[in-house]
Design a protein around this nucleic acid. Structure first.
Lengths: 206, 206
DNA sequence: GTGAAATAATGAACACCGTTCATTAGCTTT
DNA sequence: AAAGCTAATGAACGGTGTTCATTATTTCAC
């Protein structure tokens, strides 16, 4: 049955075509500027067609959300090869902020927009997309504690939340222009100081 | 001319009536559920009337944004009476997270929504609303450094960004349900541990 | 008090939005 | 070639932000 496989391929192609079109519109016009009709115009299909491939707009945004996580995961993966747990955590943190500042629309899709979580709940699914990254973070902290390089009273879950909060909050505050009272230099210095303080929190020797 | 003052009072009254109606709609239906027409129905005026008091929807959301900051500032003010700078910072941090979790729509208005910053820029205004709180934070850190209770190599600007990032990122991650992989107990412990780590970063004695 | 001027409120109109669905067009299979 | 199935369409519905000519109300001068 070569026909059905071709059918499936065509179906997958259009699903991807819609997703790519949606991403272009999102990056061009932002969250509020994204509309089903614009995506349809972008890929030269009628609005109704999109609903044959995505249940509704939330499902499409959820797909964008997962797509953005996939891209970020590809940036994160090589960092696991950093030997020293502390340096690995710092590298992860720097990568997190750097990617957020360089790709604000990805950050928005991944963390700011609320509808993907609602769409996931409606679909009865778990948020597996980011648990992987959190477990990487947690495991690296646990490794540092186990091998003795980190302070021994560290709780990996808590420290994972703390480090994530730091880089996430920092990215968020910068992207939402809430640190406008500081100069560019002060902001950059604050980021550098933040990673210096991370070492204070982690390292065993004081 | 008592007439013009009454006019001004009536004008201020309706401005406030619209704002209160908008807040009720926002808290009931959320950010995406807020519409000029709903606000108009809420206060039993026609949609066009709202445009006599607010330039557009963004201006109305900006007013909600500033209103939310005013409420939070009232919670923050008494904390300045805490004597010890370190305890004051911890109290500010706990208040920040507590208020965010208890008033998610206020948090959304203050920090998640992007349009207020755009509206401010359009109006050619500065974001004075929150600079006050940042300066309070910064001043408290500087005080701790000056009086010798804090580590001497702390840069107040950087540390202010770091502490703000921690509590802001933590609030954000919880509210956007990104910490769903943890139990309620683990999340609460992480918050407590976060404040313990703040003491590590601040205190002079190790 | 009454007419004129100024002000405030209205709601219809426009262009857009998400979503649905009867209809059409194209391809597959017999 | 005809029948059946599938994919794409675009009109339609109710919603949105925003504008503006029209109406209603209040104020002011006489």
């Amino acid at each position: 049955m070569p026909t059905t496989t071709r059918r499936e391929r065509e179906r997958a192609d259009l699903t991807q075509l819609i997703l790519d079109g949606a991403r272009r519109v999102f990056e061009r016009d932002g969250h509020d500027g994204l509309s089903i009709r614009k995506v349809a115009r972008e890929i030269e299909y009628s609005p109704g067609t999109i609903y044959l491939y995505y249940k509704d707009k939330d499902a499409l945004v959820l797909a964008l959300h997962e797509d953005a996580f996939t891209r970020k995961a590809q940036l994160f993966a090589p960092l696991m090869q950093v030997e020293d747990p502390q340096e690995r955590l710092i590298a992860m943190g720097r990568s997190y902020i750097k990617h957020a500042l360089a790709n604000p629309s990805d950050f928005h899709l991944m963390f700011v927009d609320g509808c993907p979580m609602q769409a996931l709940r409606d679909a009865g699914q778990e948020w597996h997309t980011s648990n992987g990254a959190f477990q990487m973070l947690r495991a690296t902290i646990a490794e540092g504690v186990d091998t003795g390089g980190f302070r021994q009273n560290i709780n990996p879950d808590s420290m994972a939340v703390i480090l994530w909060s730091m880089v996430h909050g920092c990215s968020m505050l910068i992207l939402s222009e809430r640190l406008g009272m500081l100069s560019d230099e002060s902001r950059q210095r604050a980021i550098d100081d933040m990673f210096a303080q991370m070492r204070v929190l982690l390292a065993a020797n004081n």
